[in-house]
Design a protein around this nucleic acid. Structure first.
Lengths: 213, 213
DNA sequence: GTCTATAGAAAGATAGAC
DNA sequence: GTCTATCTTTCTATAGAC
């Protein structure tokens, strides 16, 4: 696990994110979650073996089960915390803004940048949802509803204030989320554009999509 | 496989699509591809077993291997044909239009509607790409490049004609594709909006995103 | 071209020593 | 809390009869 290998950089950054994310955890749990996030994002939940996760985290195959009851449990913890940080980011962006236009720009821009910066977690949040158990799905669904609500709220605020001109509010809200969410599908750390640039482009496009003219 | 079960409706519609899609195939192959498309879209490639595909198609587990050399081969055939019909749809929309604005509207609108109408195939095209073998990935990548090229071409046409005002052409092209592609993620046959309505909304939004003011 | 039967490999999870 | 060893199930794919 030396710093010179290079292959574990993103795993380490996720482990750091997990450790700093409120919810306190031990270093081993953070390392396991980082390893799992890397593997799930790279190959998908079902293509990832518990042996793979364990070895990425520097543990034996049995070592995983001391900290998580199942592979699905590991996915759930990642999905839950991913949804939480994504929602927190959105709510903070909406609160900090002075006008609906500012709010929408930093909402869609920030959410897009988040999906680039944390594209492993982003993929898990957006594309591994169906692999959660029914109970775990329900828990996460609650967080997803909050996210939708924030976007629709800002859209409605802008319509009320006269800044926005929107024909179909639910359809437009979905399109705005698509703009940000789909970043997790195409983003790769190798591309030229930085997460900040992506956020700026998509934030501007979002405003353009709804501004009255 | 009676018409009254209801559970095989989408499988049958994919089988019909496959049979009518140029590339001639036998009824059994079409049925197998329909079953696989259904299963892959519902549970993902790795979560789908060959037994599941065979039984959905009314065959024994061994029956699959008479027509396809492997599970991945079945995925490849679906991915290839899916990409082809998607590209054909896009090219036709671009050709039929009189102005860049019309072209963009029917391009993004049609592509969005396609991802709703054929959401099983759409999910396979967009989300199961990484499960192809390296050789098969290359084949499909060629079709993906054509799709990107059509979108950028229309965007450039509009900028040249003065109809469009675009700050960042590659970034905007990606955002326009996101609008359409992400439909495959959230669409479900149970929702209220029809594929046509989704296409109309997204086509209008696409035009709004780039029109000079 | 379809079947039954099964080979062979790999997976998730546990037992029990340390 | 971590290990080695392994149980049990399940999977892809093939063999060989019809």
């Amino acid at each position: 696990m030396s710093a010179t290998t290079g292959t574990h950089l993103s795993e380490q950054s996720i482990a750091r994110l997990i450790e700093e994310s409120g919810d306190p955890t031990t270093a081993t749990v953070a390392r396991l979650m980082g390893a799992a996030a890397d593997a799930f994002a790279e190959k998908g939940f079902h293509a990832t073996t518990t042996r793979d996760i364990a070895s990425r985290a520097g543990l034996s195959p049995a070592g995983v089960y001391v900290h998580f009851t199942s592979k699905e449990d590991l996915l759930f913890e990642l999905s839950r915390r991913g949804h939480q940080t994504a929602r927190d980011e959105l709510v903070a962006a909406a609160r900090a803004a002075q006008t609906p236009t500012d709010a929408l720009r930093s909402l869609v821009g920030g959410f897009s940048a988040w999906h680039a910066e944390h594209h492993q977690l982003g993929r898990i949040v957006q594309y591994e949802f169906r692999n959660l158990s029914p109970e775990h799905r329900d828990t996460v669904l609650e967080l997803r509803r909050e996210i939708d609500k924030v976007v629709r709220g800002v859209l409605q605020d802008g319509v009320d204030s006269g800044e926005f001109e929107v024909e179909d509010i639910p359809g437009t809200a979905l399109a705005l989320l698509s703009l940000a969410v789909d970043v997790a599908r195409w983003y790769s750390p190798e591309i030229r554009r930085t997460p900040e640039e992506i956020g700026r482009t998509n934030g501007d496009l979002a405003v353009r999509l709804v501004t009255r003219r």
